[in-house]
Amino acid sequence: MNIGEFARLGGVTTRMLRHYDALGLLVPAHVDPHTARRSYDLAQLPTLHRLLALKGLGIRLDELGPLLSEGVDPAELHGMLRLREAELERQVRQQRHTLDRVKARLRLIEQEPPMPVETKHVEPITLAALSADAPDASRQQTGAVVQSLFEQVIDQMETGGADRTTPIARYQPSAEAPTVHVIAGYALAGNEIPGLHDHVLPAAEVAAVVHRGPMNTISSAYQELAQWAESTGRTPTTLTWREYYLEAAGDDQSDWIVEVQLEL
């Protein structure tokens, strides 16, 4: 078949086929010596598919020759694709977290007392996490529980060599008042992590305030959200909170940035 027909079947452009020919990656089955027109065989489609799959995995064109000549079976390609998929998902999570941090910084720059409250929709997220109950909803009790949980989660993730992005804690009143159920963990990347549980935080409409500074002053953000919810008539019957730690590295908490979210 001519180059145009082969390009249509392969879902590529004729320009790409000429480029692959010039690199010696996919040479036409026949080239007319008089017109220089390229012709391809249908049997060359599997080679084109492998070439495009390997290229999609991020392998440079100048590295593809040996892989194509040695042959890559579908099972091996599938394994390589899964690895690439996991890497891309990790990059997306990191970029999402970076974008959230930038947005939080902008809100801090723009904010004037009182703290600005933002309402938004948050998508469901699966955490590699641990959970425990705090005796009551006070910062003294819940703070101690969430710190202990994060320490255990980090130990398990470091042991498993897991990537850590998007740290979140959720505080939900339990049926046995006044105890509060606390979940703390990181966005799950790939397979389950031994010693940790998969916790799915549901999609929700939230009201959010960005807090900058040490955790012992974060109560001002909670107060602002509670007052806003009451003033707008949107106070839930039970207050379920989330803390999204945008910048929370190191022992010096003076520059920590945490978004406090109230589920509506």
Rank of each mutant, 00 (worst) to 15 (best):
S174C: 04
E192D: 11
G185T: 08
M157N: 14
A162R: 13
V145I: 09
H121F: 09
S138V: 03
T126H: 09
L188M: 09
V153A: 02
I154W: 10
L149C: 13
Q147K: 08
P135F: 02
T165I: 15
D198F: 00
L130H: 14
T126L: 12
Q152V: 03
L196T: 12
Y186P: 02
P202H: 13
S174T: 06
A169I: 11
S131V: 06
P202V: 12
S148E: 15
L149K: 12
T165D: 00
V180M: 12
A189P: 02
M157L: 09
A134I: 07
A128G: 07
P135V: 03
D155C: 07
A134S: 15
A177T: 13
Q147N: 15
V146H: 00
I125G: 04
D133Q: 00
Q172T: 15
I193A: 07
Y186R: 07
T126M: 13
V122H: 03
G195C: 00
E151G: 03
I154M: 12
P202M: 04
E192K: 10
A137V: 01
V145P: 07
G161I: 04
Q141Y: 01
A187H: 02
V182K: 09
S174D: 11
P202F: 14
Q156R: 15
S131F: 04
R139N: 09
A203N: 00
I183Y: 12
Q147Y: 07
I125T: 15
A137S: 14
A177F: 08
M157S: 04
G190E: 02
S138H: 05
Y186M: 06
A129T: 02
E123P: 02
R164V: 09
A187F: 01
I183G: 06
A175I: 10
S174P: 08
L188F: 03
A162Y: 08
A184R: 07
R170Q: 10
E158L: 05
V146Q: 02
A169R: 08
Q147C: 11
D163V: 15
T142H: 07
P124Q: 14
L201G: 08
G190Y: 02
Y171V: 12
H199Y: 13
E192R: 15
A189G: 07
A132R: 15
A132F: 05
I183T: 15
V200F: 03
P135W: 04
D198T: 00
P167M: 15
P202C: 08
G161P: 14
G195T: 08
H199N: 12
A162P: 00
I168T: 09
E192Y: 05
T166R: 11
I183A: 14
Q152W: 00
D163R: 12
A177M: 10
Q172L: 03
I125D: 03
Q140F: 14
P135S: 05
A189S: 03
I183C: 12
A187P: 00
P173L: 15
H197R: 15
D133M: 01
S138W: 05
P194R: 12
L196H: 15
G160L: 06
L196N: 14
A184I: 03
A177K: 14
P167E: 11
P194K: 06
G161Q: 07
T166G: 01
P135R: 07
V200P: 05
